[in-house]
Design a protein around this nucleic acid. Structure first.
Lengths: 209, 209
DNA sequence: CGTTCATGTTAACAGCATAAACATTTGGAG
DNA sequence: CTCCAAATGTTTATGCTGTTAACATGAACG
């Protein structure tokens, strides 16, 4: 599988744009807003975005964002999707770099946790939004699809000659393990230590090999 | 170990109180606020508390709460502590009802997840607050102590003749597993099913017996 | 009986998301 | 090329929020 780059496409606006004086129109505000939002959430631990602050950074009035997002939640959804795609890309890369089995799962787990530690607010945002969005509208969202890819990556590290039920259980087990570990670290209950992570993750035994 | 009830002590205020007409003074507003807050968070999934709304429910003006809590965060901290104590009590009860080993851990894990599912907003609140509080002030908080009890309960289900390092790793593994599972359920990624929970949890093998 | 202190009140402020009305720029059709 | 419509921006206004300051009440204690 290739590492797809699903990142937001910051298209140069018509007639170049970029900047140039105080143009009334911004160029591509939607993309800029998402980029600025991602930047703002980058190293932070707790998601907290103010429309006014974001708009100020973009050199635009607060209500301008409403031309591109129906409300704040929609903007957060867009950010969450962007973040999930980035995480997915990292996971795919990790899966690519190693084989399956316990070793492969270890690598994916470590990657998941590391990405989470490096982008705390984004992980929180992802799970926060997906919990609200997917349930509310029963639409087969892009986020749902991205999550499916994530699970599939985990399941792929498991031996093929185990029963489907056991496989489902084991996948859930693995996902829970790395996600829980990541959350405990983000919430300050466990200090981040790559070696320790690997030890904990490879302690798992659910018919991987 | 006995099941301690660390719940908030709703002391009848001096001179009885309880209610009786529109007394200018409330009686014990602090306890009432915590109780009302717990009630409000009870079945909800996402923590969201408005001081004004809470005060309205208590039949008191919004700013009255500032006589008992320096700010909103302090109130949330109090709620988180209360919630953590309740969770701890449940865990202790579960630990009491079964022996150690894989069976014991399974019971504790199921209990943890069940309580989390029944009180989603409170679990979120607990980890949200402890992440901010314990780190900010390096004080050995009551919450820190309560968490220690939680970990100790998990560790107690493990065989005694394993090395301390392995024991620490295994404890973290177990905690991560149940916490991650609970979070995935709360975020709508996994549907709650007690049997499935038990299967996933007992799939763990880290020198329990 | 009177003072003091804890605890309540109302009024005010800044910041928030958001809606409505108005302004400007862009792009396409005649 | 011109003109009109749609897209995208701005200003203004509304009702929410947490929080502070100044004032009021009542309970406890000498």
């Amino acid at each position: 599988m290739n590492v797809k780059d699903n990142s937001v496409n910051i298209k140069e606006s018509p007639t170049d744009a970029s900047k140039e004086s105080g143009t009334y129109h911004h160029g591509d505000l939607r993309a800029a807003a998402i980029a600025a939002g991602m930047e703002k959430f980058g190293g932070q631990n707790h998601p907290d975005l103010g429309l006014r602050a974001l708009a100020r950074e973009l050199g635009v009035s607060a209500t301008a964002l409403y031309r591109h997002f129906p409300n704040k939640d929609a903007l957060l959804d867009a950010l969450a999707l962007e973040a999930l795609n980035q995480l997915g890309a990292h996971q795919a890369q990790a899966a690519q770099s190693v084989g399956g089995g316990r070793e492969g799962f270890g690598e994916m787990g470590v990657t998941y946790v590391r990405w989470a530690v490096e982008h705390p607010a984004l992980v929180r945002l992802i799970y926060d939004r997906v919990g609200k969005v997917d349930l509310a509208a029963g639409n087969p969202t892009k986020m749902g699809e991205a999550f499916y890819q994530l699970r599939a990556g985990i399941a792929a590290t498991m031996s093929e000659d185990i029963s489907p039920e056991h496989r489902a259980t084991a996948t859930l087990h693995a996902w829970s393990l790395v996600h829980g570990l990541a959350m405990l670290i983000l919430d300050g209950q466990v200090e981040y230590d790559p070696d320790m992570i690997r030890k904990v993750v490879t302690l798992a035994d659910f018919g991987l090999e």
